Simulated scan of single mutants.
Amino acid sequence: MPILRTLFAAPLVLTLLAAGSANPPSEPHLAPASSYLPRLVVEGGAPAAALLSHRGAPGGGRTYDSAGTGIGADDHFRAGSVTKTFVAAVVLQLAQEGGLRLEDSVEDHLPGLVRGNGYDGSAVTLRALLTHTSGLPDYAAALSAADPALTGATGPSARPLTALAAVRTAMALAPVAARGSYAYSNTNYVLLGLVVQHVTGHGYAAEIRQRILVPLRLTGTSLPGGRTSLPAPRSRGYHRSPVDGTLLDVTDIDPRAAGAAGEMVSTLTDLDRFYAALLGGRLLPPAQLALLLDTRAADGSYGMGVFPQRLSCGITVWGHNGHITGSYVRTAATRDGRHVLTFRVNTDASPGAALEAGLLEAEFCPPARSGRT
């Protein structure tokens, strides 16, 4: 699993078990994934954690579990960088339709925007943006370093940021990686959002709605723009104060600074449904789906809006995480989309790689069978 730089997680503000199991494992030699939820709460210091998994064809086996209080399967929350998978799917659809080519340069679509301070948009392709191999620095990290006072519930509404301003912020920074090498940067997907607008004449949010949300009936998913509140029912989000350790309610924030890199609002139900449809071939034809999952440009770390994680049992799962003020979410799915898991904690504290990996292993790795060689 690649180390993904967080998007607007604080201090950057741009930051008993309930429910039953529909498909319990027949031989629970591995702890079921739901057994990790109390650990996400206790070890991660989150008020609540929840997961939702689906197995088999659409409408098949479903498991929902939660720990703590405050997250329902259809509660709305901020999904952060999971937005990138939706943007990548739209770009690949446009490529299939002939509206753009992945070898087009940024300069072809956004003349003059990526220029100066050693940057040259004519040398950066859309493929490089999709795979995080552009060499462009991360504007989100820059904002955090420049203004660490933007924390808690006041920062987001105090400093909304346009896409153009985000890119210009990045262009003022020194390169953090050579062009062609993998370096996760939110700037790449903000640029892709602008490219979608240039090609279609509509904002990326409108294209995501028309091409993905409406056809898949993802009624709990939205691109809020400047709307600071979440639709009902909603799950609250919290940030732990670095000063005294108290939990600050940061549910209502202005997500415009995240933009195409991470503004999306969604639900556990919708994210499971989306990744099942995407990997199941309902959104992209085979050639484009193969591109989505091609990690060669990023040396195995990242495809286009998704990344692979190989588990100890040999299974590789695909998906993305989202880390934004008040929320951490992770979706993972098998290559065919027939087994999908989404889990979320309602703080911006990451659960940690080991705990997250253990949860995924419990969900996707088949139980060991006695007497089996």
Rank of each mutant, 00 (worst) to 15 (best):
D244F: 13
I208V: 15
P215I: 07
P233I: 01
L216K: 12
S229G: 11
A178D: 11
G180M: 00
S222P: 05
V214N: 07
A232H: 10
A205G: 12
D254W: 07
T221A: 03
T221G: 01
T228M: 10
S181V: 06
R234E: 14
R209P: 09
H198T: 14
S222W: 01
D244M: 04
L192S: 05
G226A: 13
Y184D: 14
V199S: 11
T219V: 15
Q210M: 12
N188R: 09
R227Y: 03
L216T: 11
V250L: 04
V195H: 12
V243I: 00
S235K: 02
Y238N: 04
A205E: 13
D249R: 06
Y184F: 14
L213K: 01
G245I: 10
T228V: 11
L218P: 06
A232Y: 09
D249N: 14
V214Y: 03
S181P: 09
T200H: 08
Y184G: 09
L248E: 15
G245L: 05
L213Q: 02
G237K: 01
T200C: 09
T200W: 02
A205R: 11
Q210C: 08
G220C: 13
P242L: 02
R179Q: 15
G193S: 07
V190A: 07
R211S: 07
G193H: 05
H202T: 09
E207G: 05
P255F: 02
T246K: 10
R234A: 15
D252W: 03
Y189L: 10
A178F: 02
V214A: 14
S185L: 05
G225M: 08
V195L: 12
P255M: 04
R227W: 03
D249Y: 04
T251L: 06
S235W: 01
D244W: 14
T187A: 08
S185P: 07
H239K: 07
L218K: 06
V214Q: 13
R179D: 11
G201T: 10
R236L: 15
L216A: 12
V214T: 10
P255Y: 00
L194N: 14
T200P: 05
R209A: 15
D252I: 00
I208R: 01
I212H: 02
E207Q: 12
L223W: 01
G220K: 04
A232S: 15
R217V: 07
I208E: 01
E207H: 00
I208P: 00
Y184A: 13
T251M: 08
R234N: 09
G245M: 08
H198M: 13
S222R: 09
L230F: 02
D252G: 01
P233G: 06
Y238A: 07
Y182I: 07
P215D: 12
Y238D: 04
R256W: 02
S229I: 02
V214F: 05
I208S: 05
I212K: 03
D249C: 05
T200V: 11
S181M: 06
G193D: 10
R209T: 13
T228F: 05
G193R: 00
V214R: 08
R209F: 03
I253C: 10
T221C: 02
E207C: 06
